[in-house]
Design a protein around this nucleic acid. Structure first.
Lengths: 142, 142
DNA sequence: TATTGTTAGTTACAAAAACAACTAATATCC
DNA sequence: GGATATTAGTTGTTTTTGTAACTAACAATA
């Protein structure tokens, strides 16, 4: 009954394997170059791409837990990639913005990500790529 | 130049989000029911589906590091889901086999995985499903 | 048959993630 | 206005992972 069910066809397994494999090389890039962790790169990306926002905003947009973001923000601050600014209206919030160095790192990594993405999907034809992204976005609930 | 590059289109990001989202519910199942970790479930699956083999075989087939497998085997042994058996010919190897309880757990989880997989892809039509799996297998290097 | 190399698996330690408990600021409701 | 609840963010502790060093068995070679 379940004898023909192969783990290689089990979607969560496949997705994890593909995610791990595809992350590995890019991870090496931001790790060796900027000493960043994955969450740091994501926070940097969100601020670089969408501009100033609070930690909470990043949590919501990126689907990350607040402790992860909190620690990533601290790390990026120590690397001088971002600064915090109190929001007068509500002092629980801190608006986060990238420094010059932060913007440079973002620009570099974003360009690299784009190249990397292109290389990764080079073997697929355009409608395969679109379909792949659509399927993944649906599964991810984005 | 890179201003229009959205992280939601970056394949490693998408793959990770989709992998996390899709794993969550199933993970909850084997965790609450059998107290298993992800690696334990994978080891269990390999032994249940492909029969007796050594830890090394599982490493190779599942693309897992030997320390992970070693710990998972210890954990599954303590749960009485598998037993080890020395290989006379070469005492470095240990052949691993599921116990009755291990087989039961495998059957239960495999059936659940199958249901879960079906539910996950219910929104896609057949050729989308095939393409998705093919793309993922290629990216994962399987 | 010593020497060196390789392989399977374990163990120990460091890095990272997950989870819970906490502080401080603001909102709500009596 | 004061008790209570919520929200943003941090800190501390426990799990889990990653990495490297290790043991034991075998292989190869001189």
């Amino acid at each position: 009954m379940t004898d023909d069910f192969d783990i290689k066809d089990f979607l969560p397994y496949l997705l994890n394997q593909a995610a791990d494999a595809s992350s590995l090389e890019f991870q090496h890039y931001y790790k060796s170059r900027y000493g960043m962790l994955r969450t740091e790169w994501r926070v940097l990306f969100h601020l670089g791409r969408y501009g100033t926002m609070t930690a909470k905003d990043i949590c919501t947009r990126a689907g990350l837990h607040k402790t992860k973001v909190s620690r990533a923000v601290t790390a990026l601050e120590q690397k001088r990639f971002l600064t915090r600014q109190e929001v007068a209206r509500d002092r629980r919030h801190e608006s986060l913005q990238l420094t010059k160095a932060g913007h440079r790192a973002f620009a570099d990594l974003a360009a690299e990500a784009q190249r990397f993405d292109a290389a990764l999907t080079a073997g697929f034809d355009p409608d395969e790529r679109d379909m792949l992204r659509r399927c993944l976005q649906q599964i991810a609930g984005l």
